[in-house]
Design a binder for these strands. Sequence first.
DNA 1: TTAGGGTTAG
Length: 629
Amino acid sequence: MQRSISLTAKRLFVHWNLQGIGNPPTVPSFFNLCGSGCWERSFASASGDYREILRNRLSDIIKVDDAVDLFGDMVQSRPLPSIVEFNKLLSAVAKMKKFELVISLGEQMQTLGISHDLYTYSIFINCFCRRSQLSLALAVLAKMMKLGYEPDIVTLSSLLNGYCHSKRISDAVALVDQMVEMGYKPNTFTFTTLIHGLFLHNKASEAVALVDQMVQRGCQPDLVTYGAVVNGLCKRGDIDLALNLLNKMEAARIKANVVIFNTIIDSLCKYRHVEVAVDLFTEMETKGIRPNVVTYNSLINCLCNYGRWSDASRLLSDMLEKKINPNVVTFNALIDAFFKEGKLVEAEKLHEEMIQRSIDPDTITYNLLINGFCMHNRLDEAKQMFKFMVSKDCLPNIQTYNTLINGFCKCKRVEDGVELFREMSQRGLVGNTVTYTTIIQGFFQAGDCDSAQMVFKQMVSNRVPTDIMTYSILLHGLCSYGKLDTALVIFKYLQKSEMELNIVIYNTMIEGMCKAGKVGEAWDLFCSLSIKPDVVTYNTMISGLCSKRLLQEADDLFRKMKEDGTLPNSGTYNTLIRANLRDCDRAASAELIKEMRSSGFVGDASIISLVTNMLHDGRLDKSFLNMLS
DNA sequence: TTAGGGTTAG
């Protein structure tokens, strides 16, 4: 028996070496064995009372501080508690996800000469794996095996988790196969870990297939397995598959819990299937699963986003009736919704109500309030709220500053925005892509092209990542200030880069070229588009052609646009009508006006004044004006 | 005594 175990261990090493891991790294010093056996004093001599107290304290650990205190007492008590008690403590800390603390306590144990056992090592391996320190986990495993401890299915499942979290999904899959070959029997933990890993690496179909394979391999998926799969599917928007799983669970007599329902309901909300979400909400109640505050928050938020106020308010009362207390998330969703509806007073009242209900507003609450005021150009109130936030010891984060900076920039107060940027940096917050992009836009809007370009240069030299928004704002700014050549240099660089260009960028360049009179170049770019033009692209190009009096070409493009399924808008018609009027083509103009009117659009101010002028000098007759109104 | 998943707000 003993012989077969050590043989297995050896094969395991061969396996890892074959996988190219090489020799496991050196074990951290604290894992070196010292004084083995000498601390293996049992609790036999300790009084029953003491053991009872220790057992109670171990099972009562709720906070990290409790655990640390208990550890201090344990290492001081004589005789020392057994390794079993220490393991229980470490396990409790690991469950709080304080993996670093677990490692540090292990280090202290080693210093004190308390040696580890298989369970202790398994806990460490788990901690290193959860922290994505796979090499350290492997080092502990190597040490452990050197000491004669054979990894069990738990140890290996932890390690599997490490592979899954370390971009080594194919190695993870291979590890499970290897485990089977070596006589380990994968259980629900093993499979669930791998399924979760597959989702993490975007291998959803493999993950779903593995659920069925589990059954074939004599392993029934449990609630946790289904939870992992439902979550993975919902995140990708595969909600139908997630709903199918609910049925599968029912068939397997596994009762879904509220979190699983919440996950699906929230996805349904996000993917705009509100009615299905509400139905599922009713269904869970009939199935005896009580919705909680999260369920209500998802639905209320979604209904508010759709402007379905009465439905949202009905749910809110329903929630209160059922004695489910709204929390900070509920209030945040409502505050946001009120601001978006322009109900500033109501939003502020909600903030007051939170305080009355002793629900502490958090950073998100303040960010929403600040953003709400900024959206409605109430900069002073926004700034006041910012000060209030700071006075309440709620630390502003990068988003708080970005919101305020954006508010000031939109009001053409870019200098105030820059001042905030300085303040932010003094607080140790580093500007991100949004911060720089906002300020670049602010300078352009304030007419300061040079400063905008300077900020962009600074952004690049500070290695702040640029994104598609940065470039659309930069190119748009440069083009509108007549710096087409500079814009072209950047645009050509972008075309060669990895960045996936969107239609907005192309629209900007086509517009810039047309405005600079280079309609031919714009046309070439338009013809070379590898993505679908949108209504703005067509309008810009049509307008460019019209500016060169290429009315036939503009009309051809107008037809092509409709053939391609792009609906013309008010801008399309107005551009074409204006051009045809200027060209004195009354018949074409009249035709277009008719079509425009039947599509529900009207002539804009420039058309009206153009027609009026033409009436005065006799180029048009009165019937034209009648057609327009 | 060791291992697995998951929900809400900007």
